[in-house]
Structure formats: structure tokens, C-alpha cells
Amino acid sequence: MLPFIRSDLAQFTAYKPHPSSNTDEPVATQFDRLDTNESPYDLPPELKEKLAWTYQQVIEINRYPDGGHEQLKNAIAEYVNESANLTPSLFTAANISVGNGSDELIRSLLIATCLRGEGSILVANPTFSMYGILAQTLGIGVVTVGRNEENFEIDLKAAQTAIEQTQNPPIRVVFVVHPNSPTANKLTAAELAWLRNLSEQILVVIDEAYFEFSQNTLVGELAQRPNWIILRTFSKAFRLAAMRVGYCIAHPEAIAILEKVRLPYNLPSFSLAAALVALQNRQLLLSSILQTLNERDKLIAVLSQHPGLQVTESAANFVYLRLKPNGSYRQDATLQNLHQQLKNSGTLVRLLKGGLRITIGTSEENTRTLARLQAAMANFES
């Protein structure tokens, strides 16, 4: 360990965006990449051509990008109101902050709330790992609670106890995903009631990265809840994972603080242009959602028939696959074996402690994945 580096960083594990593809073992050369919750569909050629023209004719490479993001924030506000069937003027640019992916916004929120020993965060595992990773890299405490093993609902009793008993520093931020990743379940009525009853001294961050697939949003409650912030992204349904554009919706005072914290010129001009083009052509881009949902339901239907597999309902563009309890084998070792066999045959999925998260791909990718998974299970059971 270098002597000038914080000693606690030696114990952390860096986030690996494509962990499945980092291997020295022989694998198929062409992967079906179903491990990162991206859209399987690239931008249509006409939109790529429009962006290429923008890059050539509009963007001045020698100039800094639009540091205030005003045009994009106005377009996002219009979409937020439209997508939630709200009054067109309810949310404006003053309610929007834009980040280099949602990760930057999460980091900014942590900086604005918990630094200098002023707070810790609460997460319910399993969930999106970057909340905890980003907090730890900033020296912020992470309090974790579990979830119900059947329906993945947050252990609300444990969560409430943690909030009441955690002091020096107290819990300042609660992170939830709606629907959750990797388990794909929506927030329940009980979870929502608990969030609504939390003290206004606690920031509630609701990550709606998969909103376009679930069509469940809580933005309509933001006007009455200044301690709530909703995160969204262009990386999933809008097909812009390569552009790294995320945004949040919140009370103008919270947005003003985030604007103080974020780095200047945090988004390249090309990313800003891509997000604007995506919003201007949202009907075209979002038209693929129905196909993804149909493919998801077909995948769940087939997987549910396998006697050794357990898959739960999904409100997102992925499914969470577990092994049914079996005393003749070790769950973790078997999951690793399945993951490896899928990888060797050409399908990348996300290996987690309790299961496999499989992103919904194209019809062809899903057909291959089913065949490879069934073959892997047959090899294991024989």
C-alpha cells in the first residue's frame, strides 16, 4: 500500500462494470452480453446520422460544453411531466440536475449530505452496489439491512431500528431502487408507507433507473416531499449507455445544492446532444419496450417450468434467477458453475451472491440463453 493512500481503501473492491468478460479462460469469442442491464438495441441509423451531423456541423470541439445544461434540463422536465401525466408546468429546469451517469449524482448527494462525519447511509441488500461503494470511498458509513427471501421486501423492522439506534453519525440518506436491482421487485405499499413516514431530516433517494419498463413512478409526490430525490437514467430504455447521462428530479433547493457540488462541464457536448436527440425521438426509442417486456415474460414462463430453478416476477428489463433449495449441493458453488458454463458457451450474465441476474436481450439472444441454461442444468443434474 502506498504510504500516502488512505489505509481503509486497501480493503475495498472496485466496481467491475463487465466482470463476466474479465477472464483468462477459453470462452466463446462472440458474447451475448446480458450482464449489465443495457438495451440490446442500438440507436436507429437515422438517429446516428443525425448525431454524426451534429458532431460535424454544430459542436465546436475547441469549446467547453454547456456547463448549465439548460436546454437538456428543460427537455427532461417536459418528459418527466409527460411520463407521469402531470401538469406540463409542474416540474421545470429548476427541479432537474444532470450527471455523468447516475453514479455522479449519487456521489454528489453523498458529498452534500454525509461528509465530515455528519451522516451515514442505509441500504437494503441485495441492491445496487454503487451506493455502498461510493459511500465507502468517501469515508461514509454504510448501514445494511436484509430483505425477505421470498418477495425481497425490505426488512422494515430492522431498517427502522437501524435509523433509531444509529448515532455518531446518524443515518442521513436512505437509498432504494424502484424496481430493485438485482431482484426486479417494485416497492410495496408497506415500504412506501415507511418511506413516507421517515423524518424530513433524512434524505430519501428513490432510484427509478427502470421506470420506462415498470411505468411506476413517485415523481407525483415530490412536490409534497422536499426530502425525496428521484434518480433516472438514459442508459436503459433510451439506449444511451455509452453516453453516460443520468438525471435527478427534486425540490429546487436540493437541486441548487447539487449544482454547487457537481464538477463543472461534467458532461461532454456529444453526450448532451445525444440525450436531446433521444428525448426528441422518444416515441421511436421507447417503442422497443413492449418487445422487451414480451421477451421477459416468455423467459420467466419457460424458466418457471424448470424443477430446479426459481424465478420471481419482474418489473424491470431483467430477471433474477435462483436455484431451488437442494440438500445435495452447495448453492454458491452451483451458481458459480452455471455462470461459468453460460460464459463458456457465449452468454454473459451477472453472478451475485444469491442468484443470477439476466438482462433481457433480443429474441435470438434470449433463445440461445435458454438453450444454454437448460444444457448447463442438464450437465449439472446428470
Rank of each mutant, 00 (worst) to 15 (best):
D155Y: 02
N74Q: 15
F91L: 04
Q136T: 12
Q136R: 15
P170G: 02
L109V: 05
P169E: 05
T166D: 00
N148C: 02
I121F: 06
G119L: 04
S129F: 08
S102L: 08
T127E: 07
M130I: 09
V123W: 00
T161E: 12
D103P: 00
V58T: 13
R107Y: 10
E49S: 15
T188S: 01
E118D: 14
V80C: 09
A84V: 06
A112G: 11
S97M: 11
D103E: 11
N81W: 03
C114G: 03
T87D: 15
G146R: 04
A162W: 04
P182T: 01
F175V: 01
I96F: 05
L90R: 12
E164R: 07
T161L: 04
T54R: 15
N62I: 00
V176C: 06
T87M: 09
G117L: 06
I140N: 02
Q56C: 11
L51H: 14
T92S: 13
A158N: 05
V80M: 07
E82F: 14
R172A: 08
A135I: 06
G119K: 07
S181G: 00
P169W: 04
G119W: 09
Q71P: 03
G119D: 03
I163M: 02
I121R: 03
T137D: 12
Q57V: 03
L115K: 13
A124M: 02
Y55T: 11
N95F: 07
V80G: 10
L90G: 02
Y79M: 05
I96P: 04
A190F: 03
P65H: 05
Y64T: 07
N151E: 01
I154H: 01
N125P: 07
E60I: 12
S181E: 11
W53N: 13
V143L: 03
E70L: 15
E118A: 13
K73Y: 09
F152E: 02
F175I: 05
I61N: 13
V142K: 01
T161R: 14
P182H: 06
S89H: 14
E78Q: 15
A190M: 03
P88A: 09
M130E: 10
T137Q: 15
I121A: 08
T113L: 08
H178Y: 08
T54K: 13
G139F: 08
Y55H: 15
A189Q: 06
E153P: 00
I121L: 09
V143Y: 03
E118M: 13
A84M: 06
L86H: 10
S97F: 08
I140V: 11
S181M: 10
A189T: 09
V173G: 09
L134F: 14
D103A: 12
E78K: 15
P170R: 04
P170D: 02
A94G: 13
I111H: 09
L90K: 10
Q56F: 09
G101D: 04
K73S: 10
A159F: 08
T54D: 11
T144D: 03
E60F: 10
F91P: 02
E78M: 11
L156F: 00
I111M: 11
A93Y: 10
F91S: 05
T188Q: 01
F152D: 02
D155Q: 03
I111L: 13
